[in-house]
Amino acid sequence: MAARFIVEADGGSRGNPGPAGYGAVVRDGDTGQIIAEAAEFIGHATNNVAEYKGLIAGLKAARELDPDASVDVRMDSKLVVEQMSGRWKIKHPDMQPLAAEARTILPRGRVTYTWIPRERNKDADRLANEAMDAGKAGRQWEPRKPAAAKAVATAVVAEPPLETAAPKAGWAAEADLGTPTTFVLLRHGETPLTPQKRFSGSGGTDPELSERGRWQAERAAEALAARGSIQAVVASPMRRTRQTAEIVAARLGLEVRYEDGLREVDFGAWEGLTFAEVQERHPDDLAAWLGSAKAKPTGSTESFTTLTHRAGVARDKILARYPGKTVLVVSHVSPIKTLVRLALGAPPDALYRMELSAAALCAVQYYADGNASLRLLNDTSHLR
């Protein structure tokens, strides 16, 4: 399922027209948690222009997190809400192109508009004022350092940074920060494509577990039952992860909750091919993909940059739902490596330096101060 976001946006002008800025936040539609922020000083403009620019920034931020998301826009500008809902005409020439741009960001059927009173739009209003204060000081607004369990905030929505909240160096994990939330990360068992090392993402045939893959899932279930600490199970909705999660959850007596952000990357035209076959058929695209996290496989809509953001959102949703718990997260090679990379604060190319076997276990602990600690990587001892 595609994500559901709430966008709150606002804009202001000190003089109307005068020095102006906007602010926008994106919230997770289930938890209400802020997962992205944007703000900018835009120079001399009116309140209405600033409000429209805030709307555009909020919609772009939501699109960057999940281009298939549905969005509920909430603003205290009745003018913008009524005009974008199609109930009022847009007569002012300064606002017509802005409204047209806003309509192109996401399909109309996936965006709704709701008026809210100003007191319920405090976060966007705060960001707009921060942007105007920054402009008064002769600089642009910069995002605050992200807090624990919050995804990246960025002022330049069209070019998001690759990183979400990275851990600090040092001994913070030794401090008394309460019970950490632990992710026990389990890669799904083998499918018929796994031994052949073929690309198998979310855009392919969605293969099921092989006989050996089921055996691997059962061994993982026994090991995790012996561990005795798993309190919840969350999994990618793809067939191989569903089957793995259901085998383990049945052994543990738990229900499985599915999170779309944990699915594998869409490998486009590379689905079902070996690395050598991709190198022969799409050498330039493969070289670009290996050289940049922003590059996409041939015919795919996803890069590792896109994955980083949606995996970070999925992580934050799980952290918000299960604070202080030990959660089994059943996913795929790329999302698990991404979560490990983010926990370490490692660069994007670290993905190519990790080995992750079928049905392997990793473990990451997340602390209240925003730090993360890698506890286990590619453990396959239960398969011996």
Results as ranks from 00 to 15, higher is better:
A3P: 02
F5Q: 00
F5R: 00
I6Q: 05
V7R: 04
A9P: 11
D10C: 13
D10G: 12
G11W: 03
G12Q: 11
G12K: 10
G12A: 15
G18I: 04
P19D: 07
A20I: 03
A20L: 03
G21V: 00
Y22C: 07
Y22G: 06
Y22P: 07
G23Y: 00
D28S: 03
D30Y: 13
D30T: 15
D30E: 15
G32M: 12
Q33A: 15
Q33L: 15
I35P: 03
A36C: 15
E37G: 12
A38Q: 08
A39S: 14
A39E: 09
A39R: 08
E40R: 11
E40I: 09
F41C: 10
H44V: 13
A45P: 09
A45L: 11
T46H: 03
T46E: 02
T46L: 02
N47G: 02
N48V: 03
N48S: 07
V49F: 03
V49N: 00
E51V: 08
K53Q: 07
G54Y: 03
I56E: 01
I56H: 02
A57N: 06
G58A: 09
K60D: 11
R63N: 14
E64V: 15
L65R: 05
L65Y: 06
L65M: 10
L65P: 04
P67R: 10
V71I: 07
D72G: 15
R74F: 08
D76P: 07
L79I: 07
L79G: 01
L79D: 00
Q83H: 02
Q83R: 02
G86S: 05
